[in-house]
Write a protein that binds this DNA or RNA. Structure first.
Lengths: 218, 218
DNA sequence: GACCCGTTACTTACAGCGTAAGAAAAGAGG
DNA sequence: CCTCTTTTCTTACGCTGTAAGTAACGGGTC
């Protein structure tokens, strides 16, 4: 079998932008963003680093592709008539869950405007839904922007907090609880007592608050 | 003059964590985050790279310091009794303006929980204000988190959009306007017509919406 | 003055990075 | 068989963060 090139033929058949991005996402999920180098990614794919430059123009584009790939995995923003608030709430929840599955790409999602061709479709249908609900077009764009920004930011804080909690570093609740109780009494209290709701519930509450605000003020 | 060590004595007198961080912030503001290397920063300070490790344990800590330094520059969140909504609106506006003065650190601000000792004071006084206004403590923390996350995220999008606009790349309004008008009619329309408000006004509107939502739902 | 010592600074070195340039191999069509 | 295109590998350059060791300084004590 396999009349060999350098490695056994067929075990890596194909290679494509998609496969490169998927491997990069897997690498980053496994070992963190800092571990992603062209050489390492090449090794994961059974290929030399420079080979990757046939599927991606440079490393920055590869990072863009990672963000794009994650956003694709979130549920589409489907517009079902006048029920725009539950639709946006579902979309927000889905996007949050997807982002938390790939926490390593969150720093990337923050620094790049998520308007790759793939995400434009979601924005377009969101705009249609909100315009049908009576929003002026500009305001509709604002609502979508605000919601998306909030979801990404919230997920980033959740991920950072989780990461920091499991090592007792500054920012963890354990760290908060041992703070100088004289200088920061409320912080210490908030750090000690369970706030009574988990991250998902707190997120949902905040999203509803945001959307309610836009509903009233529009 | 200057009985010289290697460089003229006195022209760089001192050097301290603060001076290192300030120089790093200046460098990053001038040339971007990617241009920040220990060697370059050292050169800016008239010093070799390794010298910096006396004031900062490693590069990551230096980046943490950058974020801390920027947050210090925003107006403090002062609690003036029951007027919590205008107070938070002012705080949000000040933080946004400060962040936009140093757009290069925005990616850093996103990935790090902004709970350095310096920012804890702001959180504490925010908590006091909101608790006095009747919020349960956990909810008060949620409000502050949501607001801060939103401000950072919004500033990041503004900065990224501005950067991308001035080079006509994907994501710019120019790019949006030339999109396939058949597939994305609303996006194209939103991209063409001025939305009628500048970034600051849109930001203020969204902040008010968010706070109004928390007010009603609390 | 001479001595010493902690702090600050420099030098050297290493492994790894992104990627430019060009050679070599593999597959397709004649 | 040869030739052309696409894919892959090789080599090389300048840069990075930082570990390790060394030298110079400033200030205290005799």
């Amino acid at each position: 079998m396999a009349k060999g090139h350098k490695r056994a033929r067929g075990e890596r058949a194909g290679l494509s932008r998609q496969r490169v991005l998927d491997a990069a996402l897997a690498l980053v999920d496994r070992d963190g963003l800092a571990a992603l180098s062209m050489r390492r990614l090449g090794a994961d794919l059974g290929v030399e680093a420079m080979t990757l430059y046939h599927y991606v123009p440079n490393k920055d584009a590869l990072l863009d592709g990672l963000v794009e790939r994650v956003f694709e995995q979130a549920a589409p923003l489907t517009a079902d008539g006048a029920r725009w608030r539950p639709a946006l709430e579902r979309y927000a929840g889905s996007l949050r869950r997807t982002l938390l599955l790939h926490p390593a790409v969150l720093p990337l999602a923050m620094s790049r405007p998520a308007v790759t061709p793939q995400t434009l479709g979601a924005v377009e249908s969101g705009l249609r839904m909100l315009r049908d609900a009576g929003f002026p077009l500009g305001r509709a764009l604002d609502v979508l922007n605000a919601l998306t920004v909030f979801v990404i930011g919230h997920a980033a804080v959740e991920a950072a907090t989780a990461r920091v909690n499991e090592q007792g570093a500054p920012g963890s609740t354990a760290y908060l609880a041992q703070l100088d109780a004289a200088r920061f009494p409320l912080l210490v209290e908030a750090g000690q007592g369970g706030h009574g709701a988990d991250d998902a519930a707190r997120f949902d509450y905040a999203v509803r608050a945001l959307l309610a605000g836009f509903d009233g003020g529009a």
